[in-house]
């Protein structure tokens, strides 16, 4: 039995595209990444799984139960962190967390304290007085306080500072070690690569690839740009380099291959500057998956 299973899941918003024929299988106990550019259909898929919106066709199951027919049963086992956190402003964080806990038939007091301490969250503050990052922390605590079997995270790190992101990843990994399955949706490839076992890539409403993170890393792309100290380069060719662009004495390209070969090639030039970074998902989609 899969934790999440969709077959031909389709949802459209009138004339606008939502998701088309989405097939996903998330195993119990894995951290599954779900990546794609903004507007690709990640949130639509998640909202369909949570039955916030109704599918047009296809099958959506969580722990073998139908997402629409068995909605309440499923939601007892699910913790959800939406991409944008909106809570009742006039409430203190602790009141919201207790309110959230009151929907589950278990005492969540200890868990609320543990999670709040880990995230350094002042639960006695009013939500309306909190920064986006702190509101996100409230969201994380309310999503995890009942120790759910399935954790659905939609762009969870936005608003969190790098240190807190690290704490958050550790929390998620602990939850996973406890046995929880995690669906981690993001448009940032590096954070998905950091903690996920497998990843599905969605583009324009369709799943275009599902692969293991280890395989994805073997095929990892780098965005390379370098500037020559004096000369202007008119020709540059290298195996694995694509979309080569020249601008004055600067060259930029997307590289896929052995990084040692790349460095060896670059060492042939007298460089003023070199920059090797991760290309955005959009760039990968545009220049590789589109082919």
């Amino acid at each position: 039995m899969y934790a999440i299973e969709t077959k031909g899941l389709t949802k459209s918003y009138g004339k606008s595209r939502g998701i088309i024929d989405v097939n996903l299988c998330v195993n119990e106990g894995e951290i599954f990444g779900f990546i794609g550019p903004n507007g690709a259909g990640k949130s639509t898929t998640i909202r369909t799984l949570l039955s916030l919106i109704h599918k047009d066709s296809g099958v959506a199951r969580i722990f073998g139960l139908d997402c629409e027919k068995d909605r309440e049963k499923i939601l007892t086992e699910v913790g959800y962190l939406p991409s944008e956190v909106f809570y009742y402003d006039n409430m203190r964080a602790i009141d919201l967390l207790n309110y959230s806990a009151s929907f589950y038939k278990k005492d969540c007091t200890k868990r609320i304290r543990e999670l709040s301490d880990a995230l350094e969250l002042d639960v006695h503050k009013k939500i309306e007085d909190m920064s986006l990052g702190n509101k996100k922390k409230v969201g994380i605590v309310q999503g995890l306080l009942h120790s759910p079997r399935l954790i659905i995270l939609d762009e969870p790190t936005s608003g969190l500072d790098p240190l807190m992101q690290q704490t958050f990843f550790e929390l998620i990994q602990k939850e996973n070690q406890r046995g929880a399955t995690v669906l981690f949706s993001s448009h940032i490839l590096s954070e998905v690569q950091k903690i996920c076992d497998r990843v599905a890539i969605i583009k324009e409403g369709r799943i275009i690839q599902t692969e293991k993170i280890s395989e994805l890393q073997q095929n990892s792309y780098k965005k390379v740009s370098f500037t020559l100290k004096e000369n202007t380069l008119e020709d540059f060719q290298m195996q694995g380099a694509a979309r080569i662009e020249f601008q004055g004495n600067s060259v930029s390209f997307i590289y896929r291959g052995d990084c040692n070969l790349l460095l060896r090639q670059l060492s042939n030039y007298t460089l003023l500057n070199v920059d090797i970074s991760e290309p955005s998902l959009e760039e990968i989609f545009m220049h590789y998956y589109a082919e």
Binding site: L50, L52, E72, K73, L75, T76, P82, Y87
Partner: peptide
């Protein structure tokens, strides 16, 4: 309207 529906409608009640 307040966009809080993702909180209340993802709780285990119909």
């Amino acid at each position: 309207i307040d966009k809080t529906y993702e909180f209340i409608f993802t709780k285990p009640c119909s």
